[in-house]
Computed example of a mutant assay.
Amino acid sequence: MRRQLRPTDVKRLNRTWRRSTGNRLALILESVTGPFNVGSIFRSAAAFGVDTIWLAGNATPPTNPKAGKTALGTERLVTWHDAMPATEAVKAARDDGYTVLAIELTSDALPLHKADLARNVCLVVGSEDHGCSPALLDAADGVCYIPQVGRVGSFNVSVAAAIALAEARRQEWQNLPDS
């Protein structure tokens, strides 16, 4: 009979995945203002082992009480930096050894599954209304998009961040031996 894992079993399973993970992940949140989106992104970031989050533009900090309702304390598990201009955030990520890839719909964007995410990568998501700014897109090392087949033009920013983080880890783990 199938049973849910107990907390001790979950910790053991997560420890096994952590030991199989060597690539560093980071995020830049450019002008993501919805506190529930910010909280959700921090929670996904903590789950996927993101090292650093740079806030850029007028991004809402995770200290916002509404962000905290969704983050559930996970903002303590990820290093984050107060908002700065987007190009400075890109430079900081690059100086820290990351390749910076924006998640955005542009004419030269690669489908997410074709982008090389199995390395130290900093993914960028932009504002809920307008996405990434032109200055950030020019500063980034590349751009990818999440393929969609439905009739909706885009994902919620927190969902897009989670999908991109999951794909980065999937690419890193795809050649691991079965456990």
Rank of each mutant, 00 (worst) to 15 (best):
S127M: 11
I146L: 13
R151D: 14
F155D: 01
Q4C: 05
A161P: 02
I41C: 10
L55E: 10
N156V: 00
G97Y: 08
L72P: 00
C122T: 09
Y98E: 04
A168F: 11
S158T: 08
R19N: 15
S31M: 08
G131S: 13
N23T: 13
V159G: 03
G57N: 04
A160Q: 05
I28N: 13
P111T: 09
L5N: 11
L25R: 15
G68M: 14
P85E: 11
D9V: 04
G150P: 03
P85M: 09
T21L: 07
L123Q: 14
D141R: 09
A109G: 06
V38W: 01
N156E: 00
T16P: 00
V78M: 13
W80A: 08
S20Y: 08
T8A: 15
E104F: 01
G49M: 02
G68N: 08
D138Q: 15
L137A: 08
N156C: 00
V152W: 00
T106F: 08
P111Y: 07
T87S: 05
R119T: 13
A59I: 02
P111G: 07
T87G: 01
A160N: 04
L110M: 13
L117A: 09
D178R: 11
I163C: 06
D9C: 05
V149C: 10
T106I: 04
N156F: 01
E172G: 03
I146W: 06
G126P: 02
L27H: 07
N64K: 06
G49H: 01
P61R: 02
L112I: 12
H81C: 08
A47T: 12
N58R: 14
Q174W: 02
Q4S: 12
A83P: 00
A161Q: 02
R43A: 09
N64R: 05
F36R: 13
V38C: 01
